[in-house]
Amino acid sequence: MKKILGTAAAFMMLLTAGCSSQSSSGGNTSENGEWTPSQPIEITAPAGPGGGWDTTARMASQVFEQEKIIDKRLPVVNKAGGGGAIGWAYVAGKEGSPHHMFVGSPPLVLVPLNGQSEYGYDDFTPIANVIADYGAFVVKADAKWDNLNDLFEDMKKDPASVSVIGTSSPGSMDHMQFVKIAKAAGVDVTKIKYISDPDAGGLTAVLNGSVDVYTTGVAETIEQVRAGKIKVLGITSEERLEGEVLSDFPTAKEQGIDETFINWRGFFGPPNMDPAAVEYYEQKFKELNDSPAWDEIRKKYGWGELYMDSEEYSEFLKIEAEDMETLLEELGLARN
């Protein structure tokens, strides 16, 4: 047993050693100004293992290494806590380093607006967006509503007559995607009865009739729809999605509600990352995005494709943040 304990301790030390790779700015800049990394590139997943951020980080690292797109190692570290705030603070501390990046998505805009993170999207250097997911609004198969307009008609008459459940807390993604669409349909969004279930009990609550509407990601609904247990009233994408079952889901837009919500996911560098390094990574993410290996991973996880380079990404985020701030202020959830 002693031996086992010993090996375990050694193993743990290795693990922790691997996590504290040194940080410094640098890299090699050639005469014509092209930058290349000089040491391993650390990707931070601002959450624990197993979630969306972690999976994106690990899969990107894997494809970069295996397809030899980048000839340096790309270790992934998990900095969980504060809904991302801990990880963001960690990367913010690596100011100027071209060998650090992290995975970001709408919480990077929403959490700071809720007053729960010192750092927000505008503190970091957007590198590239790679993935888009969309929201879906789900009811039980025998519910009285057949489309979003039926539902929103009832909610316009009495917003409190309908209960909505999602995994994230109010003011975060599941809530905001529903609010954004409902507002466009003319519902008084300040009166929406939103319930949060961080233990992912939303689907259960809809199946047993405790709650009326479940707001979630598109991929999470497919299997239950196939089994005939639930129906999807609408999704938040611009156009219908491709794929078996998926292509049956009507968008909010085609139901006359002119609004969308994108659950974007991309990579960010620390504040003031060297523009030459950003350019280098942009190029590499483009290669990643176009590689068959990444396409396979996208299909496996049901992720949509959405590539944006650093400049497009910055523009997109700005508009996104303004939209969200307006909505949060209306809901009385903005704290800045």
């Binding site: 969980a80 806590g81 504060g82 809904g83 705030a85 801990i86 603070a89 809720n114 729960q116 993170s117 010192e118 807390s169 109010p170 003011g171 975060s172 319930i195 949060s196 279930d197 961080p198 959830l333």
Partner: peptide, 20 residues
Amino acid sequence: GIDSQTGTSRFTFGNPNLLE
């Protein structure tokens, strides 16, 4: 930590390590 029903942080004293 963050109260899941309102998104308010409770008893964290501004320390992000306590948010969860």
